[in-house]
Design a protein around this nucleic acid. Sequence first.
DNA 1: CGGGGAATTGAGAATCGTCAAGCCAGGTGG
DNA 2: CCACCTGGCTTGACGATTCTCAATTCCCCG
Lengths: 224, 224
Amino acid sequence: MQLATLSTHYAPRTPAIARPISLDCLGSWHSYETGETVYGQEDRSDYWYQLLDGAARQCTLTSDGRRQIVDFLMPGDLFGFRAGSSHDCCSVESISSDTTMVRFQRQQMESLMESDPNFARQVREMAFASIDRMQSRTILLGRSRALERVSGFLIEMASRARPETEEFVGLPMSRYDIADYLAIAVETVSRSLTTLRVGQVIAFFDTRHFRIVNRSALEAQCCN
Amino acid sequence: MQLATLSTHYAPRTPAIARPISLDCLGSWHSYETGETVYGQEDRSDYWYQLLDGAARQCTLTSDGRRQIVDFLMPGDLFGFRAGSSHDCCSVESISSDTTMVRFQRQQMESLMESDPNFARQVREMAFASIDRMQSRTILLGRSRALERVSGFLIEMASRARPETEEFVGLPMSRYDIADYLAIAVETVSRSLTTLRVGQVIAFFDTRHFRIVNRSALEAQCCN
DNA sequence: CGGGGAATTGAGAATCGTCAAGCCAGGTGG
DNA sequence: CCACCTGGCTTGACGATTCTCAATTCCCCG
C-alpha cells in the first residue's frame, strides 16, 4: 500500500504518471473528458480521489452567479477528504481531455488507516501538504495587485511542473480559469501576462505554454 | 488522551476553556502577552501547539514590508503542523493578553499516533477541519468587493464564537489585523463597517464588540 | 490631564472591472 | 482547399472601487 510521492507546494510534484494510492484494486479508475464533472457541489463526500493524469479544477458557485476556483488539481494530488461527511461546497471538474482519477471508498480508507499506522501517516502527510499548499494560496490571494498575483501564479505553476520541464511550463487551464482562481477579471489576467511578456520576464510558446526568462524579475513582482 | 472537540469553520467552536490535547503532561503550558511571538518565521517546526485561551494571529512578512495574516487562531485550534520539517513561512503572535497555549513535541506526537490509531484519527480530523477552514477562507478572499469580504469576515467571527454569545461577538484583533487578513486597506475596513452599521445590519457595543442585527442582510452582502 | 495608538472620515490618484470590439486558432461543412 | 463559425484570447476606453495621503476624533492608560 503506497501513496503517490508526497509533495509540497514549492517542491516539484509527482510526475504525470503518478502511482496510484492503492496497488490492489481498492480504488476504481475513472476517466473524464474536458469539462466533465467528477463530483458536484451537493454530493456527499463518500469517496476520496487521487488525480493521476490530466488536470482538474475545484470550484464553487456563489449566489450571485460568479465562480471561484479553490484549487487546481494536478497529478498526484489527493482530494475529497473533509471534516465530517458534509460536502465542502465545492465541485470538481476536469479541464483536460483524458483526465484519470482513482476513487476510494471513504469507509475503506478509514478502516485501513485504523489498522495500518504507516498508511495513516502517509494520508496525514498528504493532508499537511494540502494545508501547506492552501497557505501559499492564501498568501497569493492576499496580494493586492493583479501583476503580483499573476506572477505568483506562474511561479506556482512552474514549481508544480516537473523539474526537468521548467523550461517549458504548461498551463492546462484557460485564462478564465486563471481569472477565477486569482479572483480578478480575465482581461486583467491577459493584460498582466502581456506586461510580463513585453518586459522579457516570461516568453510564450503558445497561449498555453510558457518559459520563465527572468526568474528574479518574476519573483520580485510577486514580492515573496 | 483526548483532543479538544473537533470543530469546523462554520460550526461553533470549542468554548474558551478548551480541553488540552493531552491530560498527562505530554505538553507544556505557555502564556503570552499581547504582541508576543509564539514562534518566528524562520523557526523549525519541532512543536505542535493548541491554543487554549485568548487569540493569536498567524502571519507572514513579504519582502516589500507588507504583512499578511493567514489565519486567526482561537481557543481549540491546533496548529504548527506542516509537511516535512520545513517552516511554513509564518510566524504566530498573540493578540490578546493572557493567551495560553499547550506545546507538544512533534516527535512525541508522531510516535503516539503510530501506536494509537484513535489519537491519529483525531489529529487527522483536526487537519481536515483545518483544510475546511482554509477553503472557506479562500472563498472569502476570492470576493472582489470590500463589503463582501468584511461581511463574510463578520459571519465567520460570529460562527467561531460560542453559540450562546452570538448576540455579543468579540473581535480580539485590531482593524489593522482585519485589514491584513482580508487583504484590503484599514480605511476600507473601517468604511465597510460604517456602511454596515448605518445600514442597521450590525451594531457595535464598542469598537471590539458587535452584534448582528440583520443576519439575512449580512449574508446577502457576502453572497454565499 | 495629556500622550499616543487605534479608529474614523475626507479628497485625490491609481488600479481594476465592465463593456465593446477585434484577433487568432481549431474545427466544420461546402 | 477554402469559407465560415465558434470559443478563447487580446486590446482599448471608460467608469467604479479602492488605495494612498492627510486630518480629525476616540479611547485607553499612564
